[in-house]
Design a protein around this nucleic acid. Structure first.
Length: 261
DNA sequence: CTGGGGAAGGGGCCC
DNA sequence: GGGGCCCCTTCCCCA
């Protein structure tokens, strides 16, 4: 039985990214094709839209909450309403609604949680003030956002990145363009899919030099090699006991060793 | 309960 | 700048 607990499956439609909507050609790799063929991921036009890469708007009024932001302003437009739950990053609903007039009316209140109707909208970068939100928005788009383009925010979750490339890489974790043709599981990167396909083929290219065990994943071999080592890599600060894995050390600490000292 | 294996996520680096 | 790879980390399961 393959143990792929962490794979984002497309079986439950509630969490299934709509690939046709994303216009993202998926990458199908079968074991038959896998060997010898380079794996490429076709860029996804949808995620290259300006909305996906709107720079972070810097609010120095210290009053504007992170959420909700108007969809046409927020760099994270379209992400689920349950922001506080980080797991929601996997729950991209794809429901994007254009900002309504009501949203526009709500904006001044968002900038002023004190309850006092805000009269001014101040630019966090140059301190210029505007009587209307749209005025501030125009100003920022025309003058000041260029200074804020150091940051790129994901449209599906609240994560931010300093480079467009890093953001693109991250967005793949939402769009999952690499799909296993055998079982339909989707992955963010081709080599993740490759590793997954090894679970189907049984291929284990990473062999332990100390025993006859082989592994499909290099990191798992590395973890295994620790079991051959007398001195484990991860040591408890309290009892000096060593562990082959950090997760084991964490388990040990959580089990009460640290509390007992 | 502990240790280890399997599978996968994701950031960073290098070409 | 993009893709591939490396590495670390996490999670779950099982013996």
């Amino acid at each position: 039985m393959p143990r792929s607990f962490l794979v984002k499956k497309h079986i439950n439609s509630a969490k299934k990214p709509n690939y046709s909507e994303l216009e993202s050609p998926t990458v199908f790799i079968t074991p038959h094709f896998y060997k010898g063929l380079p794996i490429s991921v076709i860029p996804q036009p949808e995620i290259l839209s300006p909305a996906a890469y709107s720079p972070i708007t810097v609010w120095t009024t210290s009053s504007l909450p992170l959420s909700p932001l108007p969809s046409d302003l927020s760099p994270i437009s379209g992400y689920p309403s349950s922001l506080s739950d980080t797991s929601s990053s996997k729950d991209h609903s794809g429901s994007e609604s254009p900002r309504s007039d009501e949203d526009e009316r709500l904006l001044p209140k968002l900038t002023d949680p004190s309850g006092v109707e805000a009269e001014k909208f101040q630019c966090g970068l140059c301190s210029k003030s505007y009587s209307t939100y749209s005025g501030l928005l125009k100003h920022k788009q025309l003058h000041c956002d260029a200074q804020a383009r150091k940051s790129f925010s994901c449209k599906y979750c609240e994560k931010e990145y300093v480079s467009l490339g890093a953001l693109k890489m991250h967005i793949r974790t939402h769009t999952l363009p690499c799909v296993c043709k055998i079982c339909g599981k989707a992955f963010s990167r081709p080599w993740l899919l490759q590793g997954h396909i090894r679970t189907h083929t049984g291929e284990k290219p990473f062999s332990c030099p100390h025993c006859n065990r082989a592994f499909a994943d290099r990191s798992n071999l590395r973890a295994h090699l620790q079991t051959h080592s007398d001195v484990k890599k991860y040591q408890c600060k309290n009892c000096s006991k060593t562990f082959s894995r950090m997760s084991l050390l964490h388990k040990h600490e959580e089990s009460g060793c640290c509390a007992a000292h």
